[in-house]
Computed example of a mutant assay.
Amino acid sequence: MDSAPNSDGVAVVFVHGLFSSEQTWDKFLVLVASDEELRFVTTLRFGYASPKVRLRPDRRIPDYNDLAEQLKTFLETRAKSYERLVLVAHSQGGLIVQRYLTRMLATGRGQELARIKGVVLFACPNDGSGIALLGRKIWWQRHPQELGLRPLADQVKDSQRMVLEQIVNAEAVGPSACPIPFWVYGGTQDNVVVRASAQAAFPRAAMLPGTHSSIIQPGSHEDPSYQALREHLRGVCRVEGVEELGPPSPGSPGSHKEEPDSGHTDSPPSAQAALIRWNHPRLGTVDFRDRQTFVEIFKELGGFND
């Protein structure tokens, strides 16, 4: 379940990586939902099939073109009502985002990309990944998604070149161009996607602490990965005039006002509480700004038994 919709704000669409799922974004989902200064942000998660093996002859593993088209459908349906989008992707998810963008440009639909206000990539193998390459070639020699993760894969590099020329460095919106800022990050301890591949030729590139998986598992609002995403979202809000950013409200991240601890992990606090503090056994202590958001996240993470 995603956060409560707010079509007047900014919708963040999270895209996971290879052999992963929508649940990989749980920690980001909770932190965004409990951040008062991101109250105009709605979170959506795009999920797709990424199995390690194909067990049934009547089924196939989707390739990047399939997934790019699926993402297009998702954005045109689930995210249809939002005028401002930010796409956030991990690992292979970043390649799917780039393939979607280039396919839109190739069909003369650049103007439709104007509502995308930014793209954030975490540990995306823009130049491929060389880890365990021999074993991957033997075990997954025909896996259509793994093929795109091999070093300097032709179609991946073609998409990247088009993104750089007609999106990152574009000057105006047109049928075959649309300027969209990309912010790309590598992990300082990531040996799956090394710095050169994660940053590639993108001009706005930096490094964050973490491994290939931990880079998208922020433990708190102060985690560098969350702080990086938060600042990009705040920047989009400022540019788009979505909100006037002021000092943090009581109980929001950055506020030092002490609030009573409910001490419960298996039931939601009363509806009258102005601030809801949840002690989650895995995510730690998280403050929520309203009951509706808390109940939705509480159910999503298994707090209720339906």
Rank of each mutant, 00 (worst) to 15 (best):
L71D: 04
V30M: 10
S91N: 05
L113I: 07
H264N: 06
Y64E: 04
D287M: 07
F294L: 13
N169D: 12
P151K: 08
Q98I: 01
D266K: 11
D8P: 01
P260V: 10
N65I: 06
S50A: 14
P268E: 06
D223N: 14
P253V: 05
R45V: 15
A198D: 09
V86W: 01
P281E: 07
S50V: 08
G110R: 04
S7P: 00
A153D: 11
V193L: 12
C178N: 11
D154P: 02
P62V: 09
E22T: 15
L134N: 06
V30Q: 04
A177P: 02
L149Y: 03
H264W: 09
M207E: 14
G210S: 12
V13M: 02
R195E: 15
W278R: 00
A177D: 04
G94N: 05
D190M: 08
Q92L: 15
D127C: 11
A177M: 12
F298L: 06
I216T: 15
G9F: 01
S129C: 06
A200G: 01
V15Y: 01
A196F: 06
T77S: 15
D158S: 09
E244C: 05
F14Q: 02
A89G: 12
I215V: 15
H143N: 14
P179D: 10
S50R: 03
G303K: 11
S249E: 13
P224C: 07
D158L: 14
V88I: 05
I216L: 09
Q199D: 04
E243I: 10
P218V: 07
T102D: 00
W278T: 06
L133Y: 01
F294T: 03
W278P: 07
G135V: 08
S20P: 01
L67I: 15
T107I: 05
A206H: 08
I180V: 13
G128K: 05
V163I: 12
I297D: 00
Q189T: 07
V53H: 08
W25F: 06
E165S: 13
G130L: 04
G186M: 08
E22M: 05
G263V: 09
S262Q: 03
L233I: 06
R277I: 14
A132I: 08
A205C: 04
L229F: 04
V120S: 00
S220R: 08
L44W: 02
G93M: 05
H16W: 02
D290G: 04
P269V: 10
